[in-house]
């Protein structure tokens, strides 16, 4: 029982981060129909930006996160601006463009920060909470809380604001949206910036849990992408459920299948996607690819 609950804690913590990464993938996809393969690298840049700022200034970690979000949102805007001429013309080139940007960001990180990477001390000094033998690290609680808050804010933005509604409209039918006077390019740029901001949030949060180095985006990107697929690509609730599900799947596979855990995780993932290709919350509305 203790093992089970402890596994759950680990799974939910990492699941929350996967959910943030998955949301970043999804928001770009639902608006542009594009999978942003640079997303994992943006997570890495976010982790670097936040940790470097935090280590250098010793200002509260929250400030560092805001700085990281600003930096990566800017990168998101740059990526979108570069890809804009291809929008609705050559989709494959756009995909390859995002892969290229990912490589550029990784190489850039090596140039700026070196290949070695650095560890980030936990911003929360208090020890783990002990509940009947189950240890819950305080930082995990913070990660889950911040992820939940970010999710709530994003949902409010998409449903309650004019700009959010415009983005939803572009997601459903970009031609009709244009006819209504919505600037599709601006909407896309916004999606990229929000996606990158979410990546930065995920990166900043996971930095103190892991080790920040130029290649850390690879695994996070793949797992976040898989989480988005599992939940239903393009769906926001799907990204959250998918992220948590993937975190838990990963955690329980590690406990039960040892060295075969990764194999089992992705096998289960493949079977679920085969049975339900649209994912758990797959929507028919988002299908521009």
């Amino acid at each position: 029982m203790q093992v089970l609950l402890q596994t759950l804690i680990g799974g939910v913590t990492f699941g929350a981060v996967y959910a943030l990464v998955a949301m970043g993938f999804s928001i770009v996809y639902r608006t542009m129909g594009l999978v942003n393969f640079a997303h994992g690298s943006v997570v890495m840049i976010g982790a670097y930006a936040a940790s470097t700022f935090y280590l250098a200034t010793r200002l509260p970690f929250a400030v560092a996160i805001v700085v990281a979000i600003a930096v990566t949102a800017l990168i998101g805007l740059v990526i979108e601006r570069f890809l804009r001429p291809l929008e609705n013309k050559d989709f494959t080139l756009m995909l390859i463009g995002t892969i290229g940007f990912g490589a550029v960001l990784e190489a850039g990180a090596v140039l700026v920060w070196g290949a070695t990477g650095h560890a980030v001390p936990s911003p929360v000094a208090t020890g783990p909470i002990d509940v009947a033998g189950i240890r819950i690290p305080t930082y995990s609680l913070l990660v889950i809380a911040v992820a939940a808050a970010a999710t709530g804010l994003l949902a409010l933005f998409l449903q309650r604001t004019k700009r959010g509604a415009a983005m939803q409209a572009v997601a459903m039918d970009h031609q009709a949206a244009t006819a209504c006077g919505i600037h599709v390019g601006r909407s896309n740029a916004m999606a990229f910036a929000i996606g990158a901001g979410l990546a930065a949030l995920a990166g900043s949060l996971i930095g103190p849990m892991l080790y920040v180095n130029p290649t850390m985006g690879g695994t996070l990107g793949i797992k976040g992408f898989a989480a988005a697929m599992l939940g239903g690509f393009g769906s926001m609730p799907g990204a959250i459920v998918g992220g948590l599900a993937f975190g838990l799947l990963d955690a329980f596979a590690a406990g039960n299948f040892q060295e075969y855990s990764e194999l089992v995780t992705f096998l289960v993932f493949a079977v679920i996607v085969m049975i339900r290709p649209t994912g758990i919350f797959g929507e028919a509305t988002v299908n521009r690819a």
Partner: peptide, 20 residues
């Protein structure tokens, strides 16, 4: 005797078993 994968980041499950 717990075996993990080289990419694994979350060891709660393995370590909980070791703790027992």
């Amino acid at each position: 005797d717990e075996v993990v994968t080289p990419d694994q980041k979350d060891f709660n499950a393995n370590l909980a078993k070791i703790r027992e």
